[in-house]
Write a protein that binds this DNA or RNA. Structure first.
Length: 424
RNA sequence: GGAGAGGUGGCUGAGCGGCCGAAAGCGGCGGUCUUGAAAACCGUUGAGGGUUGAUCCCCUCCCAGGGUUCGAAUCCCUGCCUCUCCGCCA
């Protein structure tokens, strides 16, 4: 959510900023609501004040043993008037909250213009794509051997976009997760955390998935509403919801491995081959809660932490700065890391690292006590995949294949694989 | 799943339906004292919002949502959460 004070101070600035995302902000409608809100709020508070005063008088009169009937008569009719005003106020407040919750974050000044991923900017490129003297297979063909990667079985048990991994491939995915967690904990200073994989609506509203993107989620329960997490970002970031954090506890750096569940509504027919786009996948997520002035630097740092994993695995990748049209709803600035997939002959997203600034924090009421002002102020939140394990598995398979279709285990993983060096 | 107890400020913990945003203690902050620290003493110390140039002032918040009442932390209903006992379990 954006700062309501900014709306009042400079609605035109907001309209202009949001138009970069092709988001049409109706500043006239907003101003209308705001004017009415002000009016009704003042009226309501006046009535409340009046009621409080008179009620106190009744109390005092009663204590002195005076006749309170005349006073009661005066107040009687106020009740309805007040109730009406209160209802009107809460109605308009709900309307405004609804409007505000549907407005995306303002983009960082460094985010380039552009409508879609074609306008994203390549920041850097790392590693050499492997030079095969044979035709590179994709992970589907590579995984078919011994049914280590079984799409039919996944479909039978659950449906399309589900997969079963067997034997060495299942272990390889686990090894990747271990490597990631260990690296972020021991080398990058994150503390590991384990969280619920089902979350309530408040949590999803806090990080921005609700109310606008309910269709992307799997709802697991009605009353109370529970949803499968689309990313560990949701439970982990919500750890600081409604919390005033001690300045000495910042920055908070958390790493969490979790399964992620996405309905992929609106992705019908896209990436149907292989395990690029699944309803369920494993991911290691990095989350940072920082002082506002730190978030720019933290964003660079967090992205580098994700890059370290790719470097350890010697997987070629490039770092992209997303353009205005491709940057997510809650994010102010996002870097995507795209790994090279020889089987597809393309770079594909394997990590997305975002700075949300105070957008999530305002929804979450996640604050810290600024020692300089002594007041609670909003923190900044960031997160990024470090990395998506399923897609990393694919990348390892495709980049480390040989002419026979065997997978060679990257050096960094051999100890996690119990010494196995090749998946035959 | 069954039975009971309870949810109050950073924490502990009081609170006859009216003068309670809330006693007291602890903690925090500021000060006195001290070479410094501790102790002691004095003062101060919740959040959000409205209005204002800024104060003043006003409103809301004692788990959440409804209700009763002129007036609710206090009474009633519903929900959520926590604790204890029994059952069942990983």
């Amino acid at each position: 959510m954006l700062d309501p004070r900014l709306f009042r101070a400079d609605p035109d600035f907001i309209r202009k900023q949001l138009s970069r995302r092709s988001f049409d902000f109706n500043s006239r409608y907003y101003a209308e609501l705001e004017a009415r809100r002000k009016d009704i709020q003042v009226k309501t508070q006046d009535l409340q004040n009046e009621r409080n005063k008179r009620s106190k008088l009744i109390g005092q009169a009663k204590a002195k043993g005076e006749d309170i009937q005349p006073l009661l008569d005066q107040v009687q009719h106020m009740a309805n008037q007040l109730k009406e005003a209160e209802m009107e106020l809460s109605e308009i407040q709900a309307k405004m909250t609804g409007l505000m919750e549907g407005i995306p974050n303002i983009l960082d000044g460094s985010v380039p213009d552009g409508k879609n991923e074609e306008a994203n900017i390549e920041i850097s490129r790392w590693g050499e794509s492997p030079a095969f003297d044979f035709e590179a297979k994709d992970h589907v063909d590579l995984g078919a051997r011994n049914k280590r990667m079984d799409f039919e079985l996944g479909a039978k048990i659950a449906g399309a976009r589900f997969i079963v991994l067997n034997g060495a491939l299942a272990r390889l995915q686990r090894a990747l997760i271990q490597l990631m967690l260990d690296t972020h904990v021991s080398e990058h200073g994150y503390s590991e955390t384990y969280v619920p994989f089902l979350v309530n609506a408040d949590s999803l509203r806090g990080t921005g998935q609700l109310p606008k993107f309910e269709a992307d989620l799997f709802k697991a329960n009605e009353d109370p509403a529970l949803y499968l997490i689309p990313t560990a970002e949701v439970p982990v970031t919500n750890m600081v919801r409604d919390v005033i954090i001690d300045a000495k506890d910042l920055p908070l750096k958390l790493v969490c491995h979790s399964p992620c569940f996405r309905s992929e509504a609106g992705a019908y027919g896209r990436d149907m081959r292989g395990m690029i786009r699944q309803h369920q996948f494993e991911k290691v997520e990095l989350v940072q809660i920082v002082r506002p002035e730190e978030s720019g630097r933290a964003h660079e740092e967090l992205t580098e932490h994700a890059e370290v994993i790719l470097k350890k695995l010697k997987l070629p990748y490039r770092k992209m700065l997303l353009c205005a049209g491709d940057t997510g709803f809650s994010s102010s600035k996002t870097y995507d890391l795209e790994v090279w997939l020889p089987g597809q002959g393309a770079y594909r997203e394997i990590s997305s690292c975002s700075n949300f600034k105070d957008f999530q924090a305002r929804r979450l009421q996640a604050r810290w006590r600024n020692p300089e002002t002594g007041k609670p102020e909003l923190v900044h939140t960031l997160n990024g995949s470090g990395l998506a394990a399923g897609r990393t598995l694919i990348a390892v398979m495709e980049n480390y294949q040989d002419a026979q279709g065997q997978i060679h285990i990257p050096e960094a993983l051999i100890s996690y694989m119990g010494g196995i060096e090749v998946i035959e």
